[in-house]
Amino acid sequence: MRNERSTEEVALGIRRRVFEHCIRNNGGYLSQACSAAEQLAWLYNEELNLGDPTLPMVPKPFEGVPSPSNPGYHTGAGYNGPAAPEFDRLFIAPAHYALVAYATLIEVGRMAPEGLEMFNKDGSSVEMIGAEHSPGMEVHNGTLGIGFSTAAGLAWGRKRRGERGRTWVYMSDGEVQEGQTWEAIAAAAYHKVDNLYAIMDVNRQQCDGAMSSVMDVGDIKAKIEEFGGVAVWVDAHKLDEIREAAKTPHRGKPLIILANSSPYRGMPTLQLRFPRLHYVRFKSEKERAKMNQEIARSLKVDPIDYEGAH
Rank of each mutant, 00 (worst) to 15 (best):
G81H: 03
P85Y: 04
F87H: 12
F87E: 09
D88R: 03
L90H: 00
P94K: 12
P94Q: 12
A95D: 05
A95S: 13
A95G: 09
H96W: 06
Y97A: 11
A98P: 10
A98N: 11
V100N: 01
V100Q: 02
A103D: 05
T104P: 00
I106R: 06
E107K: 00
V108P: 06
G109V: 01
R110G: 05
R110T: 02
R110D: 05
A112S: 15
A112R: 04
P113D: 07
P113Q: 03
G115L: 08
L116Y: 05
L116D: 09
L116Q: 05
E117R: 10
E117W: 01
F119H: 10
F119N: 01
F119T: 00
N120S: 11
N120E: 14
G123T: 04
S124P: 03
S125A: 15
S125M: 07
E127N: 15
M128Y: 06
M128C: 13
G130E: 02
G130I: 03
A131C: 07
A131D: 08
H133D: 12
P135V: 09
V139F: 14
H140D: 14
N141F: 14
T143Q: 14
F148P: 04
A151G: 02
A152I: 00
G153T: 12
G153H: 14
G153F: 13
G153N: 12
L154V: 15
W156V: 00
W156M: 14
K159C: 00
E163G: 07
E163Y: 15
E163L: 05
R164V: 09
R166S: 10
R166I: 05
T167P: 00
W168E: 04
